[in-house]
């Protein structure tokens, strides 16, 4: 059971990245719950949380969206490594926000980047996974919060 405030912190971490780095705010779509394992997009930046809550928070996005995002950041390299760096940075921002707002309640790992065929995100035992669609320009990514 995740509190609204906690959810907001992760969401803000994500939208903040778009607003600051790409100078164009992202909006969030209609959030929902998932009880089954959840498949990810091509690129995902993931942080592991331990402490008061345990699980993962993950930003997952399709390649097309990342390419446009890089363009807006005046980046000229759209290679695989750059994509990886980008989702890593988003995860980094989410983790920073969470550290600031939750302090010692949460311990947060350095971001990990997943790409290609990745195992789906499993809900924590007895809990549901929150999926928050992130809309930016005509693209959509997901913020996945699977904490228990």
């Amino acid at each position: 059971m995740l509190h609204e405030r906690e959810l907001k912190v992760f969401v803000e971490g994500t939208t903040n990245f778009f607003e600051v780095a790409a100078q164009q705010p992202a909006s969030i779509g209609s959030p929902y719950l998932v009880e089954e394992p959840l498949a990810l997009h091509e690129y995902s930046g993931l942080i592991e949380v331990t402490g008061k809550r345990e699980g993962v928070v993950c930003f997952t996005a399709p390649k097309t969206m990342l390419a446009v995002l890089l363009m807006k950041m005046h980046e000229t390299d759209f290679g695989h490594e750059t994509m990886r760096d980008l989702v890593g940075e988003v995860a980094n921002t989410i983790s920073g926000n969470a550290r600031r707002d939750f302090g010692n309640d949460f311990r947060i790992s350095p971001p990990r980047v997943l790409f290609g065929e990745t195992p789906p995100i499993e809900p924590r035992p007895g809990a549901r996974t929150f999926v928050i669609p992130i809309h930016w320009r005509s693209h959509s990514a997901k913020l996945v919060v699977a904490l228990g």
Binding site: V11, L33, I132
Partner: peptide, 20 residues
């Protein structure tokens, strides 16, 4: 906007947990 729905989904989750 989606932000208005964040409290809804959080409450929904809470309710599901409560019913469980």
């Amino acid at each position: 906007t989606g932000d208005d729905f964040l409290p809804i989904v959080a409450k929904l989750d809470e309710l599901v947990a409560y019913l469980r």
